[in-house]
């Protein structure tokens, strides 16, 4: 039964992650927040309601049945190359399908889906700045990310099929932050990271807190569409090493792939060899649309963003 005395709620999936906690901090004073995550929410503010469970389970519908939900921010998307591809795919695609289904059936007014600029994929053919219209090619060189593309496409499809729901798909560039454990942050925390000899592509980073701000901004009434979100700009990979005081190890690219492939297979490396494309080729996006429509300014400077991986 819907509790008529309660205010309409904002549902955050994947609330226990770094980004989820960050967004909660921004929103919970103003909004009634219901979090959904398999993991417990450590240090949960008292006014946040928490439902611990798997997004794929039918039980999640109860959250929407029992509460009036006005908006959903879907961040419960896995990016873990160590997980089996099947689990990964199942969690991301089925989880997203369930969230979208609930949003459509229970009259949610606003849906924000956190995708990623990685869906375009690094490639030597890329234009320097990819717009939102660029094809999502990541899986052509890195097949195991196709679930992330599918999540983006599901959200995209939902946008057209349910015009009554304001759907926003955000594709931020590489997210970094003090406690974030994603591939770019882990890579930059390395004291002796690999680089590919002779390659120094431009890269874009964004601070976790800026992504949280963008997600909060996406909840603004009237906003809908697909947007790339960029941080404070682009720098060469070598500038990141310099800023972080890392001493990279230059590996010739024809050798790097087979070596990393073997290391990854025997669990001696945490990156699959396909990730090397990110330190060899461009995968930069044009964030003009988002910047213009929302007057977007990242709060963290380039230097702060880079150094954030060190926990500063």
């Amino acid at each position: 039964m819907t509790d008529k005395n309660q205010r309409p709620a904002v549902v955050l999936t994947g609330i226990s992650g770094n980004l989820g906690r960050c967004l909660t901090k921004l929103l919970h004073k103003e909004e009634r927040i219901i979090g959904i995550d398999r993991r417990p929410f450590v240090g949960k503010p008292k006014d946040v309601e928490m439902v611990q469970g798997d997004l794929r389970k039918k039980k999640i519908e109860d959250v929407f049945r029992r509460n009036q939900v006005k908006a959903v921010v879907h961040m419960g998307i896995l990016h873990d190359p160590r997980m089996s591809a099947e689990d990964h795919h199942s969690f991301n695609v089925l989880g997203t399908t369930r969230v979208l289904d609930c949003a459509a059936r229970f009259g949610v007014k606003k849906l924000v889906v956190l995708s990623s600029a990685d869906v375009y994929g690094p490639s030597p053919d890329n234009s320097n700045f990819l717009t939102e219209e660029a094809p999502l090619m990541a899986a052509s060189r890195f097949p195991s990310v196709r679930d992330l593309i599918e999540v983006d496409m599901l959200a995209h499809g939902f946008f057209w099929r349910h015009p009554a729901v304001e759907t926003v798909v955000l594709r931020p560039v590489h997210i970094v932050g003090p406690t974030i454990k994603n591939a770019p942050s882990n890579y930059l925390r390395n004291r002796r990271p690999w680089k590919l000899a002779g390659f120094d592509p431009m890269v874009q980073l964004i601070h976790m807190e800026d992504v949280a701000r963008a997600l909060a901004e996406a909840l603004t009434e009237g906003r809908k569409g697909v947007y790339n979100v960029v941080g404070p700009g682009a720098v060469p990979l070598s500038a990141l090493f310099k800023e972080l005081g890392a001493r990279p190890l230059a590996i010739p690219h024809p050798l790097a792939r087979p070596i990393l492939g073997a290391l990854f297979k025997y669990r001696l490396a945490s990156f699959p060899p396909e990730e090397l494309d990110h330190i060899q080729f461009l995968c930069m996006v044009d964030g003009e649309r988002w910047a213009k429509e929302t007057h977007w300014q990242p709060a963290h400077s380039m230097r702060e963003t880079i150094r954030s991986v060190l926990g500063e």
């Binding site: 030597p124 890329n126 234009s127 990819l130 717009t131 590919l196 002779g198 390659f199 120094d200």
Partner: peptide, 21 residues
């Protein structure tokens, strides 16, 4: 962009891949 050193050199001196965009 697939050539080591050449790709970096070209980017730093302002030459870019000829895509229409």
């Amino acid at each position: 962009p697939t050539l080591p050193w050449v790709s970096t050199f070209m980017a730093r001196v302002g030459q870019i891949v000829g895509t229409p965009e």
